[in-house]
């Protein structure tokens, strides 16, 4: 039994739900993200939020998978601050939907001033509504700088780091994130970034507290079965079953349950 706490099912087929269920997936969380193109209106986001809070949970339930979501305008579309503010204005109207866990995936992409401004406004929104935060960190050469800027922005607004998960950590950011009290996510990519092997290495070097793994499967080259593949890698290395269950089930459950809305069953038991 496992949880994939970061996957963009809007970009995946129904067959993927079936394969994930067969591999033992019981719950997922789907952050709002960049669709691969810039949306031209706030209405485009309103439709996307309806999909995330209504259509997608029903599709997941067919396979016994509990679907949850996070809302935001992502950093790749944050250069247009006017549009970003319109979208921010729509979010409170969706926060009461039963599968919404909080604000995400917010963060930075190229570490620009407007991205930081829009990030600050999302953090303020999350604080006002007392909801959890899921953070996207930049890729490749921009990750280390962006991760520090994001954590500083959280600190400046007095956010409790225990209610924030910082995703896409790698070997050079994981320690910074954990040492400042945040939760950390490792995203398993087929080849360009973190692999299941390196994720297993990180557990060996840094332990399993406040760490989880996810596939971040989306419309690009990605693998919706990345989490069970990492579990297999850990088993192959002789990691304790208890540790494997901790990083792929107990830790996400513990962090996400702070929302009061997280379920590991479509029937509704916590």
């Amino acid at each position: 039994m496992y949880i994939d706490p970061h996957i963009h099912m809007v970009s995946r087929t129904t067959d993927d739900y079936q394969r994930m269920a067969l591999a033992g997936c019981v719950a997922i969380t789907e952050p709002a993200f960049w669709a691969g193109y810039d949306r031209s209106t706030a209405q485009g986001f309103a439709d996307y939020f309806r999909l995330l809070t209504d259509a997608e949970p029903r599709r997941a339930a067919q396979f016994g998978i509990a679907h949850h979501t996070w809302l935001c305008i992502n950093p790749k579309e944050s250069e247009d601050v006017g549009l970003a503010r319109e979208v921010l204005g729509l979010i409170p109207g969706f926060l009461d939907r039963p599968n919404v866990l909080g604000i995400g995936e917010i963060g930075l992409n190229k570490n620009s001033r407007n991205e930081l401004l829009v990030l600050d406004e999302h953090i303020a929104l999350a604080k006002r509504h007392g909801v959890l935060i899921l953070v996207h960190t930049p890729h490749l050469e921009d990750k280390l700088k962006g991760t520090i800027l994001i954590m500083d922005a959280m600190r400046n607004q007095g956010v409790d780091p225990g209610r924030v998960l910082i995703d896409h950590v790698e070997e050079h950011t994981v320690r910074h994130v954990l040492d400042r009290g945040f939760w950390a996510g490792m995203t398993l990519y087929p080849d360009t970034k973190m692999t299941p092997q390196r994720a297993a290495d990180v557990f060996e070097m840094h332990g399993t507290d406040r760490l989880w793994i996810n596939s971040a499967g989306d419309w690009g080259v990605s693998d919706p079965l990345a989490v069970p593949k990492c579990r297999l890698e850990m088993r192959r290395r002789g990691h304790l079953l208890e540790s494997i269950q901790k990083v792929s089930f107990e830790n996400p459950k513990q962090f996400l349950s702070q929302s009061g809305r997280f379920r590991v069953s479509v029937q509704g038991e916590a």
Partner: peptide
Amino acid sequence: WSDRSTEPIAVAPMKGAL
């Protein structure tokens, strides 16, 4: 391989990274 500057940049020049 990381950008070791610490201040935000003026405008994002592109979406991706190199």
